[in-house]
């Protein structure tokens, strides 16, 4: 595999993780009109759950569904216990509450699992086992898993009764309530789904970044950038943006000497600022609630 191609594939796999977390952000925003700054930390918590299961001797592909179930339940719990109390509050209230959640979850993970850095097993086998081909193979695996998640979401929203109910709630909560839908439960389910998608992103990125309570800080910024590109509403643009950011970051870090490994984080900042400033439209199709 040529060097450039390998970089692109690795960028795509990182991008797929960003896209996953960004998709979780979009889900939460579509359902409850909140930009959830704690989304990355919830994903980190899910990753610790997965690590605990693996540590107890469970095989990876059995631990994943259990982790997802725990994450969905956790997301619904957070919505029920915290978010419902501030629903419809001002922007500052909503940002403050998710920021509080961020600090709390981060510290809780540190309390339970300590701040030590742990390695997380790579779920994809080194099948083609020669050097660079192995990382290429696991990158393709990450891409595949994220694609499956997106397909599952698409089927859920477009081709099931539950998906129809959720779309009804997103489109018009008041009418949905009048039609007998339990809006509160559906909003909780939205948070649960987002937590599940975020959990997938966390589990996939953990082998690359190592597992520690602060691991999702950088990923969250990329995911926010991708979600901003999709104006927090368009899943297709968001996913494409996530993939593009991953490739841009990897290539800039490798081939642009000035950027190097240190300044890679500046890539999403530049993208966010450029997107928000150039076309006036992007900022104005902003959060409507």
């Amino acid at each position: 595999m040529s060097d450039l191609l390998l970089q692109v594939v690795q960028g795509l796999s990182l991008g797929a993780v960003y896209a996953g977390l960004a998709l979780a952000l979009v889900l939460v925003h579509r359902f409850t009109g909140i930009v959830n700054f704690a989304q990355g930390e919830l994903a980190m918590l899910s990753t610790y759950v997965a690590w605990q299961l693996l540590d107890a001797g469970m095989p990876f592909w059995a631990a994943l569904p259990v982790t997802l179930a725990v994450s969905v339940a956790g997301g619904m719990l957070v919505e029920r216990l915290v978010i419902r109390r501030v629903e419809g509050g001002g922007e500052l209230t909503l940002v403050a509450v998710t920021v509080g959640l961020l600090i709390f979850v981060n510290a809780a993970a540190g309390l339970v699992w300590s701040f030590a850095v742990r390695s997380f097993p790579n779920p994809f086998p080194a099948a083609l086992g020669f050097g660079s081909a192995q990382s290429g193979f696991s990158a393709l695996g990450v891409l595949g898993v994220v694609a499956v998640v997106m397909l599952a979401l698409y089927v859920l929203f477009r081709h099931t009764g539950a998906g129809l109910i959720m779309r009804a709630v997103v489109a018009d909560p008041v009418s949905a309530r009048l039609a007998g839908i339990r809006v509160g439960r559906v909003l909780g389910l939205g948070w649960g789904l987002a937590a599940g998608v975020g959990a997938v992103a966390g589990v996939l990125v953990a082998p690359l970044l190592f597992l520690e309570p602060n691991m999702m800080g950088g990923v969250l910024v990329y995911a926010l950038a991708a979600a901003v590109l999709g104006a927090f509403r368009d899943p297709v643009v968001t996913v494409a943006a996530g993939l593009g950011l991953g490739v841009a970051e990897t290539l800039a870090g490798t081939y642009v000497g000035f950027v190097g490994a240190d300044l890679k984080v500046a890539v999403p900042l530049l993208v966010i600022v450029a997107v928000l400033l150039l076309p006036r439209r992007a900022a104005e199709t902003a959060p409507e609630r």
Partner: peptide
């Protein structure tokens, strides 16, 4: 971890 735990809780 306790300072973060307490701060987060107070904020919420």
């Amino acid at each position: 971890a306790v300072p973060g735990l307490v701060s987060g809780l107070v904020i919420i």
